[in-house]
């Protein structure tokens, strides 16, 4: 529980993401909707942080605020010590959406090369990095396929490769495996952990699956809706090395239980 700071002191002197009393209110046709309310949070370098909560709890909105895709209406947020916009202009983010969102007119290799083209990498460098990241997500050999010729899981892996292709030190993932079946999902979870271990990136991961959150994270942020707020932050006691069957250990189940309690405490299931 390192973010409850009655004395206003930072527990981590150099957090990668530092949010203080964030507020975000959308003006809609039916009046204002408070999507985020008083969110205070620190994410340290190399953390794997999951945001979990029912739909409408603002977890995606929070991710979008971090990525400078939404502007907060109150509070402050810094990324790597600067504003989200400056961080974005410095290309600090790799963003993975719920759908793969690959461009249908580009091959897999050229899709992965897209951010590299935009950021002005040389042709040789592009080739190098595309080959390396496709290898990282086990897609070597599919360079010249078009997205629609691949399965959903492979498309999502390609979109992760696209986010990894440049040296963003923060990976923002918005329910990246939400549309996939459980078998593929398990597999990708395992691969994602290996990837994280190899690259030491900071990952912010939105999910609504409790096992997924517990299995992946070093830190679990439980959120609840109306208005969207943080109700609990759980630091995982699991080791960094996590085989799939760690999910049957009592330690794992205990953390999962605590997450579930946190969700219940937020009254999040009452009126869903």
């Amino acid at each position: 529980m390192d973010i409850v700071m009655p004395n206003g002191l930072d527990p981590d002197p150099t957090p990668v993401i530092r949010a203080r009393n964030l507020d975000l209110t959308f003006q809609t046709g039916d009046g204002p909707v408070r999507a985020l309310s008083d969110v205070t949070l620190d994410i340290g370098k190399g953390d794997f942080v999951s945001f979990i909560g029912p739909s409408g709890c603002g977890k995606t909105t929070l991710l979008r605020v971090i990525a400078d895709l939404e502007q907060p209406t109150g509070g402050s947020i810094t990324v790597n010590g600067v504003s989200p916009e400056q961080a974005r202009l410095k290309r600090a983010y790799g963003y993975v959406f719920q759908a793969a969102g690959l461009y249908p007119w580009r091959t897999i290799a050229r899709n992965v090369a897209l951010p590299l083209e935009i950021m002005g990498y040389s042709k040789a460098e592009q080739r190098d990095r595309v080959a390396r990241t496709l290898d990282l997500v086990n897609l070597t050999g599919f360079e010249n396929k078009f997205p629609w010729q691949l399965s959903g899981g492979m498309q999502q892996r390609a979109s992760i490769a696209r986010a990894l292709a440049f040296d963003a030190d923060i990976l923002l993932m918005d329910e990246p495996f939400g549309a996939l079946d459980e078998i593929v999902r398990d597999h990708l979870n395992e691969q994602l952990l290996q990837l994280w271990a190899r690259t030491t990136k900071t990952i912010a991961f939105v999910t609504h699956s409790i096992p997924e959150a517990v299995y992946l994270s070093t830190k679990i942020v439980v959120m609840s809706p109306r208005p969207g707020r943080v109700t609990d932050v759980i630091d995982s006691t699991l080791p960094r090395e996590r085989p799939l069957d760690i999910r049957e250990t009592p330690e794992f189940l205990e953390i999962a239980h605590r997450v579930r309690e946190g969700l219940r405490a937020g009254h999040s299931y009452e009126d869903v």
Partner: peptide, 23 residues
């Protein structure tokens, strides 16, 4: 979503136009 992606790359107007919106 595709536009947001271009935004996270801090792609400029013309880059977004040529690489995403025109195709």
């Amino acid at each position: 979503m595709e536009r947001d992606l271009m935004r996270t790359y801090a792609a400029g107007y013309w880059q977004t136009l040529v690489k995403l919106r025109l195709p």
